[in-house]
Design a binder for these strands. Sequence first.
DNA 1: CGAGCATCTCTTAGGAGATGCTCGGTGCCCTAAT
Length: 479
Amino acid sequence: MNEEQLKIELEKRFGYSDFKPGQVQPILSILEGKNTLATLPTGTGKSLIYQLSGYLLEGIVIIISPLLSLMQDQVAQLKYMGEKRTAALNSMLTAEEKQFLLARVHKMKFLFLSPEMLQNNAVMARLKQSKIALFVVDEAHCISQWGLDFRSDYLSLGKSREALGNPLTLAVTATATPKVRQDILRSLNLSPEAVAVFEGAVNRDNIYYKTVAVQPEDKNAVLLDVIKAYPTPGIIYFSSKAQADAVTHLIKQKTDLRAESYHADRSNEDRITIQHQFLQDELDIICATSAFGMGINKPNIRFVLHYHMPNSIEEYVQEVGRAGRDGNPCIAILFYAATDASFKLRMLQNDFPSEALIEQTVSSKKMAVEYATPTEETLLTYILQNNLSSTEAKAFVENRLNLKKEMLFKMKDYAETNRCKREIIAHYFGKEFDEKPEFCCSSCGDEEPYMERFRPARDAFSKKVQDGWGKIVSDLFLL
DNA sequence: CGAGCATCTCTTAGGAGATGCTCGGTGCCCTAAT
């Protein structure tokens, strides 16, 4: 199959006349039977890659997805397009529903599962009987980001894949450093030579990167100035749920902006409502923890502000990348206080098991559960499962901690540097950096001229809020 | 790699100084017994 024929299929199945950049090559690669890793910016239609390929291959497409809400969205989207042979197999189903679904797996075309579900014997037994066209790992960076200290079942994907007879595999994610790509391939038991890798661009020309040094006690005041000056909608990221709530309250008190907080303590209903309102432009600002954002595709986000710095540059880039999907100017603002970095470093070290605990665990061959942090628990479980010796275990933990520290230090460097922010990001992702946009970052030049470009967007948005003209007005002004 | 607050200690009644505690975020999965 060549590109022209693919276009015909695209038109036929989805009604699109052409592909978005970066979609064709991974599809062709899959259809040639090659395991494929594709890193594409979000919003470029990653799901179309497995959907179209899936239709052109015989058998069922299994999609490993990190979040229940993402599965729901994807199933809804497929059903909306008229595809009935799709379902999500997860804990939202009753036991009976699960059995019913499992019994007719062979009639499915697209089946969504969490990595945890693959640990279920009944599920695996059923999948083994099915002809698997394609094994897809969506948001594959979760393997690297969560596998070792949060959701360890992400590390077992390779074993599950093997148990399923090493089906043709596609891993997709928005951002992956060389290290993350390596983690993904290793976890999936894919040797680098046997995988076709496609990388999209990391650089986002329409984002202006800005860092502001702010003492913790001044953050709120500076924040209020910032959100009054910049056009909305925007996201403010926090590393504390309580602070996200507190600042939401402050914004409501001190401004006319419509704000809500979003984090794991909010009920499912609230989270759905808030996300929906934000997508519909019924909220100006979301104050969120890292719980917010995966799978969100809102084109007109004008700023992403970090009240605390994240743990790594990849997290930062992922969160900041949610701004300006429409291609219009937007800004990423990072509040930085040296104490934020030291605090995060200390927490990181606290999370990891001590040498004594490692030795105790290895020699007793069982977990000392009472005092374990989630990270300790995950790491120690891994050590026990893989039967590491005390020396190996200590080296393993130290290595992992050092990696995390290093990521944090690089984030700190990014925050503190006077060098070009864009360049640092590019290099971090292993990219050459060639062309600087006119308005680059706070190290390269003043934002004031860039702000001029914001003004139409801001005026359009406030107009829209005032007289409820909706999209027409804002679209006109954004052109 | 700090900072703010609460409690403790000493020694004798109001307070100084020391010590301890606390400060973080991501999500799957239905295991049990009335």
